[in-house]
Design a protein around this nucleic acid. Sequence first.
DNA 1: ATGAAAGCGCTAACAA
DNA 2: TTGTTAGCGCTTTCAT
Lengths: 338, 338
Amino acid sequence: MATLGDVAARAGVSISAVSRVLSDAPDSRVSAATRERIVDAARELNYRPNFAGRALKSARTQVVGLVVPDITNALFTELMHGAEDEATERGYTVLLGRSDDVRPGGEVIARLIGEGRVDGMALQVGDAVQPAGLRDLLTAQAPIVLVNSSIPGHVGSVTLDDHHGALIATQHLLELGHERIAFANGLPRSFTAKRRRTGYKLALAGARVRVPKEYETRIGYTVDNGRTALHRLMALDPKPTGVVVANVNAAVGLLGEARKAGIRVPEDLSVVTVHDSWTAENTWPPLTAVKMQFYTVGRTAVRSVIRRIETGETSDEVVTDPPPELVIRESTASPRSA
Amino acid sequence: MATLGDVAARAGVSISAVSRVLSDAPDSRVSAATRERIVDAARELNYRPNFAGRALKSARTQVVGLVVPDITNALFTELMHGAEDEATERGYTVLLGRSDDVRPGGEVIARLIGEGRVDGMALQVGDAVQPAGLRDLLTAQAPIVLVNSSIPGHVGSVTLDDHHGALIATQHLLELGHERIAFANGLPRSFTAKRRRTGYKLALAGARVRVPKEYETRIGYTVDNGRTALHRLMALDPKPTGVVVANVNAAVGLLGEARKAGIRVPEDLSVVTVHDSWTAENTWPPLTAVKMQFYTVGRTAVRSVIRRIETGETSDEVVTDPPPELVIRESTASPRSA
DNA sequence: ATGAAAGCGCTAACAA
DNA sequence: TTGTTAGCGCTTTCAT
């Protein structure tokens, strides 16, 4: 790989002149002729700035880490695209990582920052594991912005409007005439689950609808959790006629299990999920869903991290624009009694 | 962040002594007492080696890039885990990227290597886009190992046993008594599609079964492609009684469309897919699938990249162990005429 | 307008 | 056994 020295030699100028031109410093102080010779030489040698050299000198990598519990979860697709678009526009690169990494000595997050591989990061901690060594980093004021999650005392976060999302989903069922509306939620300790819960309750309260406490399950967000939730809910008396599922993966599981149990959707049970993804379109029946704005969350999170890196400012933001959006498909209908 | 100098000062020794101890050189040539002082000091200061410093000096990053067309495709989950496990065992880190990145000036792959962000990479090129600048890199002998894909003339690859996978899927339908077996394949130019095609044909030939040429569609691997394939196939006369789908996403689409068209699976049409993933378990009916060994491919690819980096050796490998594995669910049955 | 030189954190060859 | 030193590629201050 060609270095600045190589380019300088070829152009017959000094290294510093080349540096000034190629790192497009605002004031490069070189004559047009020199500049042209340098640019030509760089192109001919296919020069690219060495990452390590630049990072070492400037103590900046221009890289932000994006660490989520499960990279391959369809939900994160948009988040990543948003993050990458924002980063690219601002001259940064995104480094992807998983936060569920608990392998011995792993502590991915601590390493990313501690070894100077990234300047800062957007981090979504899972509901299960609290990554090792995180506490230290947070107290050490590392430029970390939390995404859709929280750690007591940490400042700097970007979250979805979960509350509003669950509210819209619940209102959709109410408008269809349902009153026995259940809620298949995530684990009680889950940050997002708490917020979605509020939206659900508020919607019911707003319509003066009361449901038994057992109508809310708090099992989790996985496909299997959704399956379990279905059994739990359909064993109740009276059975719910509609269910809001707090996560699309759980909704897929719940739907599959309903079919297995001979429960027809939407005739016997309406299902609406918070979160949309390509999987929701391809179930049978296709799932009515509330699309959450992950793309914007990704953009906002990266913007927030960069601001933190460059100016030191922190903020806690909730993405409300654009708002969550109801996508009506075929898994919801009016209850049969109505 | 603490540097070697900080640790040295605290331990009252020279920087090089610290370096020798902490980079666990086989022959660190220090007394037990000194070593202990150094280790203690490092722990107290929470020392971590600076990535850029080390990379600049050694001209090695100990990072391998893993670049695939779609990071969030469920198919790649196992591949990534395999890659990460292998990398971790060998003291490397995996850097994830997308190969479908065609944004202006993007050329992710060229940058990753050209700027020295990675020492080498495992690359799966999509069927659609040939990433920009790739040709140059390959001819420049960059340590790149292709995964499940090919570029004319390039040496160094790790591929699945696609041929065998499609063969097993087809044989499953044959054993159930099907003879009118269709094949919903990927695009003609797709590397994997060509190989799966061979397996399908060989299985038919082995059973002395002949089918019309139109029984093979070559539309693509997406959900929508699968939907299209269903219509194409069910418009034929005679209709197939079974179909091998070359990709699980396409199979999900094909299945959904069958339901919409009132075609019952498996009564009217058996569906078996090459590839297994969590989505295949959650369709209705759950999809019979041939599980391909992506985990092993990931491991093998990273091992191959590292060997290439460290010794310069190249190889073209096909992962045959463990072999593809048939997972029978509920989307296949004997044809009704049988 | 251009160049010389210092130094970021680290490793390794060499000296003591 | 321990320390000194050069230099990886780059940016930036300071001379010229």
